[in-house]
Write a protein that binds this DNA or RNA. Structure first.
Lengths: 219, 219
DNA sequence: ACTGATTATGCAGTAACTGCACGTTAGCAT
DNA sequence: ATGCTAACGTGCAGTTACTGCATAATCAGT
């Protein structure tokens, strides 16, 4: 298996079919809009039967959005875990960027897809849902990293809760950066978040050894 | 009684039908699970035709989830805007709690619904989507409040971005609190978030009482 | 009671998606 | 090359969510 096309006719044909389907799907949606495109249209345009379409993709949306995000990149995860950068969030977002599976064939589809997604609330929702597929993994990685840097008096359970909460925030952050048009400076988000949060919650940073007392929820 | 039944037969019948549909939907899903319940089953159980079902609810999910969240409560919004509480987040969450429309008839359905939602990822997603319907309103309210308390050197544009970002975080926070089982202390979330965020992003804090700067977690 | 406007319903149709059976083809051993 | 086998593509029938339209039932004001 030296090159790429040394994988047997079968696999090459499958790749070609998948690519044809995705290309047709993206092109058709770009032209007619999500709701006006039916699975039958995509099938006709890509030359496969409807049944085959559903053998390749479980839903119409899946074909439009392309291959589902897989696992986090192991190497990047390891880097993340040992990093000491104060800006954990930015590193986390970098980690998540590796989620969108891109290869030579599908590269051309990335940009149109982002246009489609950001213009269709329904698809945006679906994409967030897909991204949430790594929720558990993100939570776990966050936990490990936060645990390592945790104050001595912080219980593992509390660290667990914190990482879970942050993991829940991730889709929102991604969505925000998507909607802002990601032309914005990549590091800008963590700064923005820092500023916002210091005013949103009573950040009482006495020091790490003192137990953080919850500010009284007095009006 | 001058209460509710003085609205004419027509409206009373409609309310009864809607209630019957929602009750049947919730009961059936509780018994058989979301996927095993068809619209036809709900119709049979509530004694309406399928067409009528779809006259009342646009989708099957809508019937299960009940009336869609409306606008934020005006009075509470006004209170929120003038409040000086340091825990803005907690107040915000309180504001959002007013979103789920509850009246005497539907009160019994709230608890079962929460069980259903937290056990079904698909429905959880839909509920978040519904909650996101107030996204713009939340962003605007947040903006006004944050603008009021903004540092002198902060541009309106920056405040705008901050509030938008926080508004994007809201669904995640709600979801987190839902999944944790809301038995947890209601005020706990902002504390948790504060602790998590100080370690997630480089927070440079000039505390209001003193000048305490949080050193980023150097390991 | 009569009339006009709502509302409920039946029916036909569309579209996403699934299970099954059957034919075709790639991959491999002889 | 040839033939076998397992994987794959496809057609078809069926289910389910949902919509438009025409019609019948029903309420509200006169």
């Amino acid at each position: 298996m030296a090159g790429g096309s040394e994988q047997g006719l079968r696999q090459r044909k499958q790749a070609a079919t998948a690519l044809a389907i995705e290309r047709s799907a993206v092109a058709l949606v770009l032209e007619h809009g999500l709701d006006a495109v039916t699975v039958d249209m995509i099938c006709a345009a890509s030359g496969v039967s409807q049944r085959t379409f559903f053998n390749y993709y479980r839903t119409k949306d899946a074909a439009i959005l392309g291959a589902a995000p897989g696992k986090l990149d192991e190497r990047q995860v390891r880097e993340f875990l040992v990093s000491d950068s104060p800006d954990m969030l930015e590193e986390l977002l970098g980690l998540l960027a590796s989620l969108v599976p891109v290869n030579a064939d599908t590269r051309e589809l990335v940009a149109p897809r982002m246009r489609i997604i950001s213009e269709s609330p329904a698809l945006m929702q679906k994409e967030m849902e897909r991204l949430s597929g790594v929720h558990e993994e993100v939570a776990e990685v966050l936990y490990l990293r936060m645990r390592r840097a945790a104050p001595a008096d912080e219980s593992a359970e509390d660290t667990r809760r914190q990482s879970a909460l942050v993991a829940h925030l991730v889709p929102g952050i991604l969505r925000f950066s998507l909607e802002q048009g990601d032309g914005a400076a990549p590091g800008a988000i963590s700064g923005l978040l820092a500023r916002a949060l210091t005013r949103l919650v009573p950040v009482r940073l006495t020091d790490r050894s003192g137990t953080e007392t919850q500010a009284p929820p007095r009006l």
